[in-house]
Simulated scan of single mutants.
Amino acid sequence: MAPPSRWNFPASTISPTDPMPYRERFERLSTEELLGYLRLDLASDAKPVLLRVLAARGVSSATIELVLASEAARQEEECHQQKRMASQGARLLAFAIDFGLATLAFGALMALLKPVMDATAEPFASGIWWAYMMLRDAVPGGSAGKRLMKMRVVRIPGERRMTLGASFFRNLTHFFFMIDALFILGERRMRLGDRLAGTIVLRRDAVGASIPPAACPPAQQNP
């Protein structure tokens, strides 16, 4: 159930200074919207009024407890997932490692191929560089940078194995690197490429954090 959106301000801002009393405000909403408000962080004196309005409409305490329990479970799962997410710093460092290694490989290829391929050496080496940078997340086990930083990229929902297509679309947004990178500062740490490809970046382990592995079939996990 989505949180109510009848007003332009969040429910958590409701306070005794609002011109409209709590009861009058709540009574204008549908029962479904009121149950949505139960999931939000209301002002301390607004919650009892909300519960009284729900009771007056015949909503059972069991229903209210079920909504509250499901919201608590959602928040716990969200917290659990946040702990499993790779940090922003580690992700940027992994990208720098991949970029650096690909550039070194480009230089080495140029040195080897230039004497024998001449004019075609640079396009060939450039093609190898771009292929790695665009498709590296589909490499079994992950790219070199992500291996070193102990991270893995998976598709959501279900934490499925990366494909060549998903890796291509995920890395396509590197053309707008500065804007793209800013998005990993968000709560879900999903840059534009992650949103486009439907991917997230997880830590490979969670040593000392008591975080169990994701509940998904082993065949869908990156090796």
Rank of each mutant, 00 (worst) to 15 (best):
L40Y: 04
I179N: 01
A214R: 14
L101W: 02
A11H: 06
H80K: 13
L202A: 04
A166W: 05
A219M: 10
A62Q: 11
Q75R: 05
V116E: 07
M162R: 00
L172H: 09
G142T: 11
G193V: 12
H174I: 10
S5D: 09
I179T: 00
R39D: 00
L135N: 01
S12F: 03
Y37D: 11
K146W: 04
F95T: 08
A86W: 12
M133L: 15
A102C: 06
S15H: 15
V67H: 02
E159L: 08
L34A: 09
P223H: 02
D45H: 10
N171S: 07
E71A: 00
G198E: 03
E76T: 07
T13I: 05
L42V: 07
A214L: 15
R84H: 07
D180K: 00
D180G: 01
G36P: 03
R23C: 13
I156T: 06
F176V: 00
L101G: 00
R188D: 14
A72D: 07
I14T: 11
L68Q: 14
H174P: 08
E32M: 04
P16T: 01
T63Y: 02
R161Q: 08
R25E: 14
F99R: 08
S210F: 14
R160Q: 10
D118P: 11
P140W: 01
L104E: 03
Q75H: 02
T199L: 00
D194P: 06
S126R: 10
Q81R: 15
L148C: 03
M20A: 05
L51G: 02
A197P: 08
M178F: 11
S143T: 09
G186I: 07
V201I: 11
R155H: 00
G208M: 01
S60C: 09
